[in-house]
Amino acid sequence: MRAAVLERFGEPLVVREVVEPRPGGGEVLVEVLATCVLPYAAEVFSGQRRYPLEPPVVPGLGGVGRVLAAGPDATRLSTGDLVWCDATVRSRDDARTPDITLQGWSSRGEGGLRLSRHFHDGSFTERMVVPTENVAPLHEGVDPVGFSAVGVYLVPYGGLLAAGLKAGETLLVSGATGNFGSAAVATGLAMGAGAVVAAGRNRAVLQDLRERFGPRVRTVVLGGDAEADTAALRAAAGPVDVVLDLLPPAADAAVVRAAAMAVREYGRVVLMGGVGMLGGDDLALPYPWLMRNSVTVRGQWMYPRDAVTGVVALVRSGLLDLDHEQVTTFGLDRADEAVAHAAANGGPFTRTVLTPCRARDGDIGPAPAPASDTDPGRRVTAR
């Protein structure tokens, strides 16, 4: 079978024949139909992000596929089932504090690194092995290409679960103009937030979010003055119940602080971004303010296992509408082009998708007919 391999950091992906994996106990062999290429993939593959990924490796963060073979511990999966493959793999020998690896992408600590050496290769391939518990059945009406964007929505969904977001509450998204942040706006609305305060510096993107989702979205253009920004965020929609930060590593910790301090008394702040990962100032919050206002601050990396079924339910119900997605697809032979395209096109609801088993030898087939200029529905472009 063929796969796109990262031989060394800083080198292009090499599409070549690799040994087909064989599933063991507790594993499923899946044919990969579609996998989303994240905008910062080029930073991971160059080594800029300093992820504990060990080349040579087939990268890629999960996606949509079909079951080719399942082990005897799979009681409901059948060959041919359409499934979501979740990249968040947890060790099985410690239910309370499991080690975690993101298959084909990253890991946490020494235990996560050890786990990654078994579940090493990701989804930039024709076939991959996934832990049985990481395979979630989908109904046959699902479009694999469009649904592959679910991996982006799962991240903020995990943060909002950690925050205990309740219907009717006000959510503030710090970093709302980015790829994950804009998904957080849509996810918060789907979960019943009464209002979502979208904060960022890109005025045009903020206006687009307001036009897409209507008056429940309140936008705040940040000016860089911490006190003024905090005041503007507090004034945008009254008391803020939950703050979710999704800012990337290059962002200033002062921006996170301004958003966090907009939360009300007894409010919750969840940190999911990358601030400080590549150096720079750590987040500093005043001890007296935290204590006297009974504010809860917690970090959250990824999401619990049952988050997948939760997001799938939101999509099936229509509460989370994937028709906002504008998708460009690439065949496996053009994996490196897909990475470059994702880096140059990382705006809100703009996805780059690799289709390993739909584009063998460049045969992509006809792209779906584009929507009209006045139709906000999903557009798919094949490359």
Results as ranks from 00 to 15, higher is better:
R8I: 00
F9E: 08
P12W: 01
L13Q: 09
V15A: 05
V15N: 07
R16V: 09
V18P: 12
E20H: 07
P21S: 08
G25P: 07
G25A: 12
V28S: 12
V28Y: 01
L29T: 13
E31Y: 02
L33S: 00
A34P: 08
T35G: 01
L38T: 11
P39I: 00
A41F: 13
V44L: 15
F45P: 07
S46Q: 08
Q48L: 05
Q48Y: 09
P52I: 02
P52E: 04
V58Y: 03
V58S: 06
L61G: 09
A69N: 06
A69K: 10
R76N: 11
L77M: 02
L82I: 06
W84T: 03
D99I: 02
I100G: 00
L102M: 15
L102G: 11
Q103K: 11
G104Y: 13
S106L: 12
S107F: 01
R117F: 01
F119C: 07
G122M: 09
S123Q: 01
F124N: 02
E126W: 00
R127F: 05
P131Y: 11
T132W: 09
E133T: 00
N134Q: 10
V135D: 11
A136I: 10
P137W: 06
H139T: 13
G141N: 09
G141H: 06
Y153H: 15
G158P: 13
G159Y: 09
L161S: 11
G164M: 14
K166F: 00
T170C: 07
T170N: 08
V173K: 06
N179A: 13
F180A: 15
F180T: 12
A183N: 00
A184M: 11
V185A: 09
G188M: 12
A193F: 11
V196H: 10
V197M: 04
G200D: 05
R201A: 13
R203F: 04
L206N: 03
D208T: 10
R210D: 08
P215V: 01
R216K: 11
T219K: 03
L222I: 12
L222Q: 13
A228M: 04
A231S: 10
A231Y: 04
A232Y: 00
A235S: 14
A237K: 00
G238P: 00
V240P: 05
V240N: 02
V240R: 02
P248M: 12
A251M: 05
A254F: 01
A254C: 02
V256Q: 09
V269A: 09
G276A: 01
L278E: 12
G279V: 00
G280S: 12
L285E: 12
P286Q: 04
Y287S: 13
M291F: 13
V295N: 06
V297S: 05
G299M: 04
Y303A: 02
A307N: 09
V308L: 08
A313H: 13
V315A: 08
R316D: 15
G318H: 14
L320W: 03
L322Y: 05
E325D: 14
V327H: 14
T328R: 12
F330I: 07
D333Q: 08
A335L: 02
D336V: 03
A338F: 10
N345A: 11
P348G: 07
F349V: 02
F349E: 07
T350M: 13
T350S: 15
T350G: 15
R351G: 11
R351A: 15
V353L: 10
L354P: 04
D361T: 09
G362S: 03
G365K: 08
P368F: 09
P370T: 06
S372L: 13
G377L: 11
R378G: 14
T381E: 10
T381K: 04
A382C: 13
A382F: 15
